[in-house]
Computed example of a mutant assay.
Amino acid sequence: MQYNRTLKAEIIRCVQKDLTYTNELSADMSELLQLTGPRNWIRYNHMINLLSQIVYHGFASLQNLQTLGEEYTGIFQIDNKQISIPSKLLRLTATILEFGGEQLYIKLLNDLEKSVIENKEILPEAKIKIRTTIQFMIGSIPYIKAFHKGIFYYFTSSTKYHISKRITGIRYVHIRNWLKPEYSLYGYKFLGTLTLLQLAVSILLKLYSVFKEKNDKNLQDHFTKSTSHLLQKSFDSHTSQIPKCTLCLETRKNTSLTPCGHIFCWDCILEWLDEKDECPLCRDKISKSSIVPLQNFL
């Protein structure tokens, strides 16, 4: 109990410490990218954070070294058998899975969906089911991550904060745990309980939304038999083509672009940044000075 009590806290401190260093590295790399011109900065800046994470953790993996966060907290990576340190390939695989695995997973599913759509030998009914399954797999990612984090916080024996560590079997051990204070696990259990409850509520709300959407669709299909509804449907189709801001849900005004590639109204995104310095959609760190107004763009 004392071992896990200390280790769980130090893993979280390690993650926070490494995040501080990677954010600093990301900021430095972004400034270097700006020297190549604003066009390249807008095009490639969204990749800087991923690149900085892979460079930082990849260097430690290839050199069989602790990260600065691991060294600071006194923890070390070992293989699942707990008899030796992980191989360079295993550590590098865990790094790629942790910071690029989600993007790779989504890209593979999108490519699969595209190939299914273009395949003329697949029946239309089968295409619809396959595409629904693929969209379900993509949409389930946030719920899987939340469930994994809830398990980490709630269960005393769980010390794998990252999903990549669970996949590769990499574990953490203390190399100087006798110097560490004893932490209480009740706070983690409470946080894990809240995380799992929030996940359950989110799933219920999602199911309700899908159920309601299905009922609305059935109702809409019923009314499409009338001429008046056909006219209304044509009008709705024309209206839906007008680009809208995801913040105010109105037609975009003074269209503006974030460094991560998302588009909002100029006033909407600036008001958002007054409250949080992150993109409303992907949560990348952004600032007001990085917002670019787009001319002659709807």
Rank of each mutant, 00 (worst) to 15 (best):
M1F: 06
M1E: 02
Q2I: 06
R5C: 13
A9Q: 09
E10A: 11
I11C: 10
D18Q: 10
L25A: 04
L25Y: 14
S26M: 07
A27L: 15
M29Q: 08
M29T: 00
L35D: 14
P38R: 02
N40D: 06
M47T: 12
L50N: 14
Q53H: 14
V55K: 07
A60G: 07
L62M: 07
Q63H: 13
Q66P: 02
L68K: 13
E71K: 10
Y72G: 08
I75Y: 07
Q77F: 02
I78C: 13
D79G: 08
K81A: 07
Q82H: 14
K88P: 02
L89G: 01
R91C: 08
A94C: 10
T95H: 05
F99H: 09
F99K: 01
F99M: 00
Q103M: 13
Q103Y: 11
L108G: 01
D111G: 07
D111K: 10
V116H: 00
I117W: 13
N119T: 10
I122T: 07
P124Y: 00
A126G: 00
A126K: 08
K127Y: 00
I128Y: 08
I128T: 15
I134L: 01
I138K: 03
Y143C: 06
Y143V: 02
I144L: 05
K145D: 06
I151F: 10
Y153C: 09
Y161Q: 14
I163S: 10
S164G: 08
I170R: 11
V173N: 13
R176W: 09
R176A: 05
W178G: 11
E182H: 09
L185K: 14
G187K: 05
L191R: 09
L191S: 09
L194P: 03
L197Y: 09
L199W: 03
I203F: 07
L205P: 00
L205G: 02
L205F: 11
S209E: 06
Q220H: 10
T227D: 14
S228Y: 08
S228C: 06
Q232K: 15
K233N: 14
F235D: 12
F235K: 14
I242A: 01
K244N: 04
E250R: 09
I263N: 09
C265R: 08
W272H: 15
D274S: 13
E275G: 07
E275T: 04
L281F: 12
C282L: 02
D284L: 05
S290E: 15
P293R: 02
Q295P: 02
